[in-house]
Amino acid sequence: MTDLTGKTALVTGSVQGIGLAVARALAGAGARIALHGLADAETAAEVSAEITALGAPEVRFFGTDLREPERIDRMMADLAEWGAVDILVNNAGIQHTAPLADMPRETWSAILEVNLSAAFHTMQAAMPGMAERGYGRVVNIASVHGLVASVNKAPYCAAKFGLVGLSRVAALEYAAQGVKAKGGVTVNCIAPGWTETAIIEPQVAARAALHGGDRDVGIADLLAEKQPSRRTSDPSEIGALALWLCDPVAHNVTGTTIPVDGGWTAQ
């Protein structure tokens, strides 16, 4: 089993969905966890308590707005004082579907800021320290939409394609840092397909409405278009993959984008 005792992990967007699943997996391996999200105090406390119960020796919560670089800088500085970030999981993301001609400019900017620019800022702050210590893991939660396009998702696809490119560049720049025994410094993307999270609910609801409100039929119809397995993924499956990437045994897995998409991008 992966042992992350003594490591500190920051997981953005970790109060629900994939981010929470990743935080659970890392906590179970003994990592200190920095949670993040735009959540009220009660939700933050509940999630922090859950992550502590799963095995994290220490937990902190950050409510940083990732659209503001100065606030990201403060969060990363606070984290450096608490415990240098060894594992960085950029998961926070927002989405809005609309045709290119109708996409509001402010929506374009917000999606790029949260889904792409925030990852640049956190990586820029955390990765030099990872190199100095000889171990570091960046796991960026991209999407199949970082590998293939879909209509009505211009800013989301642009951000996710950009995240894949950013990750590859960082992987090359840090590939020779560290040694095999410590695990080195790696940067990878996970590209989920249809996964049971809140971000896909508007699309599920719209498709279910075409079938008399039947959610199961709506999901089946949605998956039939693109995901050959016709099965959704559970967030815990993404968490398990992220945990494996953090193991020192994965020291030579870097610069990759691993789809979890039921064959979507194999077509």
Score class of each variant (00 low, 15 high):
N140Y: 00
V204N: 02
D216L: 09
N152H: 13
A220N: 00
Q203I: 07
K153W: 04
Y135W: 08
G213L: 08
V164Q: 02
A242P: 03
I141L: 11
A209T: 10
R231T: 10
L147M: 15
R207I: 12
K160Y: 00
P235W: 00
G213E: 05
S150R: 12
P155M: 10
G134E: 03
T197N: 00
A175C: 05
G193I: 04
A154I: 07
T232P: 06
A205I: 04
A209G: 12
E201R: 10
G162A: 03
R215Q: 12
G136I: 02
L241G: 05
R168D: 09
H211C: 07
V169C: 12
K153V: 06
C189T: 03
Y156Q: 04
R231F: 08
Y174F: 15
V217L: 14
P228Q: 08
V164M: 06
P228I: 09
G239L: 07
G239P: 07
I200N: 13
T195C: 11
S233I: 11
I219F: 05
N152P: 02
P192M: 09
S150Y: 09
R168C: 06
L223D: 06
R231S: 11
G165N: 04
A158F: 06
G165A: 04
E237C: 07
L222D: 04
V169R: 08
V179Y: 03
L172M: 14
T195R: 02
L163R: 07
V169K: 00
I199Y: 01
I238C: 03
A224T: 02
A198E: 15
